[in-house]
């Protein structure tokens, strides 16, 4: 081999990537050729000095930024999917039910207003107060239907809107409560679940709501919800929740902060 060909092996030699057989021949040549030996030494020096350079440490918040980016990306992917869904079913969604319920709702309110006006002007109390009651009942029913259908919406913000409607429903019936619990226990979005918990806490005068909340403790895996539910239980002074919380404490992967909070909640409740 010529000197030039040996020189092409310098990097491999320095990196110890040279196969044993080549290495022997290479070293033999370097021992015999002063020019190549000098070149190799200079080469090695440059290589070593390059190794002296340390780069600044990357910022400690890089993993945090990555997680934020990942969360954003995931959100945008679901958004993309729902945009596609919307496009696909745009006609139906636009004209079939989405505006229909709110429009019907608005119309009903208009009718109520007009009837109220009539009622005041005519003073025909008995017949119209009957009508008023029926109308009010219809509006109430309508509100419930709007809420229930919003809970089925693929968009998380629409579902939250649906949950917030419950504050307007005075006497939540079983259907509404069941729908809220289904959302609390199964909705994929934490924010929706949190607002559902709020809404249910507002309905805590129903015994079945309190009971449902206690049962729901074991079903929550998000630390946010676990601690929010602990707050609600403490506020309601729901002593029957202690057992469920103790069960929760047995979970191995329970968040440390949540663990402390739940232990505190239990000690306050007993």
């Amino acid at each position: 081999m010529k000197c030039e060909q040996y020189q092409d092996l310098f990097t491999d030699y320095i990196n110890k990537q040279l196969p044993a057989a080549d290495k022997a021949a290479f070293e033999q040549h370097i021992a015999a050729c002063p020019a190549c030996a000098k070149e190799l030494k200079a080469f090695q020096q440059v290589w070593d000095v390059l190794g002296e350079v340390t780069i600044p440490e990357p910022s400690a918040d890089m993993p945090m930024r990555f997680n934020a980016m990942l969360a954003n990306y995931k959100a945008s992917v679901t958004e993309e999917v729902s945009v596609w869904d919307k496009l696909k079913g745009q006609w139906q969604q636009l004209w079939q039910w989405q505006p229909r319920w709110p429009m019907a709702y608005n119309l009903a309110i208009l009718v109520v207003g007009l009837s109220a006006g009539f009622w005041f002007l005519n003073g025909n109390k008995n017949a119209d107060s009957e009508k008023m009651k029926t109308l009010a009942a219809e509006v109430h029913e309508l509100k419930q239907s709007v809420m229930l259908s919003l809970l089925e919406n693929p968009s998380a913000s629409e579902r939250i809107r649906g949950v917030s409607y419950t504050s307007e429903i005075k006497h939540a019936d079983k259907e509404v409560i069941d729908a809220l619990f289904a959302t609390l226990n199964n909705d994929p979005n934490v924010n929706v679940r949190l607002s559902t918990l709020d809404a249910l806490a507002g309905l805590a005068n129903h015994p079945e709501v309190r009971q449902g909340l206690v049962q729901s403790i074991s079903q929550q895996d998000s630390p946010l919800l676990q601690s929010a539910i602990a707050d609600v239980m403490l506020k309601l002074q729901e002593k029957s929740s202690v057992g469920s919380f103790r069960e929760l404490l047995k979970q191995k992967n329970l968040d440390k902060g949540v663990k402390q909070k739940i232990s505190k909640t239990i000690s306050k409740l007993i």
Partner: peptide, 9 residues
């Protein structure tokens, strides 16, 4: 690659 690394050096 070998040749290029060498030339760069």
């Amino acid at each position: 690659v070998k040749v290029r690394v060498h030339r760069a050096m």
